[in-house]
């Protein structure tokens, strides 16, 4: 299990990265934390002609609280997110999401940007990005652009980043007041990718009525999936078990054929999506009531 030969370069600026990507096109691969890429290289399942290591670019490693959101540099290690006081205090959902990722030994290397750009449909950060309508900043030959999460995740391991574009920052909005959240996963082993996962937020008004619901299912399709129809069913209700059951049925029923693999059939994944959605909505609602 030794990687095939490749060239390696460690540019120190974004324009250099863009130029390299233009030069090598699809033959190049960006190396961030390497927690997904390196196993593929060791197995010789990925065969780039050149690796572009973006770890030497200054100022891609930061966590900044901005107005209504947290802006995180693409090369920020997941462990830095985990250990940042700002994150724990201002964005507990981001903290909890981070703690669901693998193990500290992986989070020490793995980056937030790398996880989002890799776009594994069972990964937590892409799901969170979709849940929160995060904004991805990318730089390419035509300059910088912002891509919303809805437009970002295209299919399995594929994003709307162009071949010569590099992700530089992710902005994750803070949760509104009186909002509760929940992450539900079923893993066979702690720290593994979930067979199915659900993230939810519920915002209640002073009277306990749901003003906003966000629901993302992950590990069940080619990308994380926003369950918009189910969300709509909750808004305007005082959500309780009846609503959770109905919304969960809707969210799981709306799924296209879920993934099927050695650990879980499509049918099982769909049912897990239903169960975990119901549990997530119940927990998020309870937390929202507590947060009020």
């Amino acid at each position: 299990m030794k990687p095939p030969p490749f060239e390696y370069t460690a540019p120190t600026s974004i324009p250099e990265v863009v130029a390299l990507l233009q030069e090598h096109d699809f033959e190049a691969k960006i190396l961030a934390g390497g927690q997904s890429l390196m196993p593929l290289l060791n197995m010789r399942l990925a065969r780039p002609s050149i690796l572009i290591d973006v770890a030497r670019i200054p100022d891609l490693d930061y966590i900044r609280a901005t107005d209504g959101s947290i802006a995180i540099g693409a090369m920020t290690r997941q462990r830095s997110v985990e250990l940042a006081d700002t994150v724990r205090t201002s964005h507990p959902l981001l903290y909890a999401t981070t703690m669901h990722i693998a193990h500290p030994q992986n989070r020490n290397q793995g980056t937030l940007g790398g996880s989002i750009a890799h776009a594994d449909p069972a990964a937590e950060y892409p799901a969170l990005a979709l849940l929160l309508d995060a904004e991805m900043r990318a730089v390419g030959p035509d300059g910088e652009r912002t891509i919303t999460a809805t437009d970002f995740f295209i299919t399995y391991l594929t994003t709307s980043l162009e071949a010569a574009e590099v992700l530089t920052e992710v902005r994750l909005p803070l949760l509104p007041p009186r909002t509760g959240w929940s992450i539900q996963e079923l893993t066979r082993r702690h720290g593994d990718y979930a067979l199915a996962g659900v993230m939810a937020t519920i915002t209640l008004d002073g009277g306990g009525q749901c003003t906003e619901a966000r629901l993302v299912l992950f590990g069940v399709g080619a990308t994380p999936i926003r369950a918009s129809n189910a969300e709509q069913m909750l808004i305007g209700t005082k959500p309780g078990q009846t609503e959770f059951v109905a919304a969960a049925a809707k969210a799981s029923g709306d799924l296209d054929e879920p993934l099927s693999d050695v650990h879980a059939s499509a049918e099982y994944r769909r049912d897990l999506a239903r169960v975990l959605t119901r549990r997530a909505l119940a927990e998020a609602t309870a937390n929202a009531a507590g947060a009020a």
Partner: peptide, 28 residues
Amino acid sequence: EHGVCGACTILWNGKAVRSCIMLAVQAD
């Protein structure tokens, strides 16, 4: 050699990481 078992864990600038899924050039 694919980052699961942790036998190869070392400290990289004080942080525990899998040295089987890290390139030597990354440690420059």
